[in-house]
Amino acid sequence: MPLYQIFSIQSHTKVYIWKITESFNELFRSVILKDVSLARVEKMKAESHQKGFLAVRKLLEIAGYDDFDLFYDDFGKPNLKDQKHISISHSNEFSVIAISDYNLGIDLEILKDKTLKLAPRYMDVSHLENLSTADALEKATIIWGIKESIFKIKNEPGISFKDHIFENKFNGKDGKCKAELRFENQLELFEIQYQLIENYVLVVAFMSV
């Protein structure tokens, strides 16, 4: 079934997950797009990106919205007209959205060897010490998702994953941890939740209050 899962994070956030099993034409015929979105779909070169984009619109409908309720700011960050916060991600056969009373970032990443190979470029690899290859891959993917999610919240030019976003040491099986953004002489703290969905890692970040 394409609607894969809906779950809540406390009382303030809902996460909607779509597993893409439809053809492009099936998805395209099932949603109504505003002109700017239609033009965006037509410019996408990869069908997987088109389907991910359309699946997000299906999730919006399930959440009680449509494409006309969604707009993007000058930095490409999605917003809803009713001023609820929204974050969006898609990877291969899954699309996800999170809608919240609080500013948040969500990221979905498939487990792939390349993420582990590139780990020295974006994280402190000491966090992977004494782990099996499988556990190291999972944790490296979680950490990438943490950094991506925090970047989606802040959405400011110049933020470096390796130099400015730092995850506290954590057990990759706990489902939650904390992270920091140290940027332009300011320190901001974040609460992180993560989980496995098949062979993907889903990460949600919130600013600490």
Rank of each mutant, 00 (worst) to 15 (best):
S87H: 01
T13R: 14
H85L: 04
L27K: 12
E180L: 11
L137T: 02
L70K: 02
C177D: 07
K58Q: 06
S23H: 00
L60W: 03
A134L: 10
K114A: 03
E42A: 05
G175R: 09
F28L: 14
I110G: 04
N103V: 15
I159H: 06
A63R: 05
G105D: 03
L187A: 12
S11R: 10
I146H: 04
H49R: 12
I32K: 06
F68L: 07
H49F: 01
N25D: 13
D35M: 06
L181H: 11
K162M: 03
N155L: 06
E188F: 15
F24G: 04
D74G: 14
E22D: 13
K169Y: 08
E138A: 10
D67Y: 01
K14F: 07
D74N: 12
F28S: 12
K176S: 15
D82L: 05
D73F: 10
F24I: 08
K14I: 13
P78V: 07
I6T: 10
A98Y: 04
L189C: 14
K14M: 12
Q10T: 15
Y72I: 09
P2M: 03
Y4G: 05
I6S: 07
E93H: 02
I159A: 08
A55C: 02
E180M: 15
L128N: 12
E188N: 10
Q186D: 05
N79I: 12
F75M: 13
Q50E: 04
A134N: 15
Q5I: 08
M1D: 15
A55R: 01
L59T: 02
A98L: 08
H127V: 10
N92K: 11
S23C: 01
S89Y: 01
L111N: 02
V203E: 05
I88D: 00
R57W: 03
I197T: 11
I86P: 01
G52L: 00
N92R: 07
T133R: 14
P78Q: 08
K114C: 01
H12C: 07
S89F: 01
V209K: 07
G76V: 05
Q10N: 10
S30T: 08
H90C: 01
Y200Q: 13
D69A: 09
F183R: 08
H85V: 05
S23E: 01
K84C: 06
I192Q: 14
Y122G: 08
S132H: 10
S48F: 06
E129S: 13
N25Q: 15
K169N: 15
A119C: 05
H164C: 14
A179G: 09
L60D: 03
A205G: 01
E22F: 02
G76S: 09
V203N: 03
P157N: 09
K173E: 13
V56N: 00
V56K: 00
D174S: 14
R57P: 06
M1N: 07
Q195F: 14
V36Y: 07
F75C: 14
D124V: 04
I153L: 14
T13E: 07
D135H: 15
V41S: 00
N103K: 12
F7W: 09
K81I: 14
S11M: 08
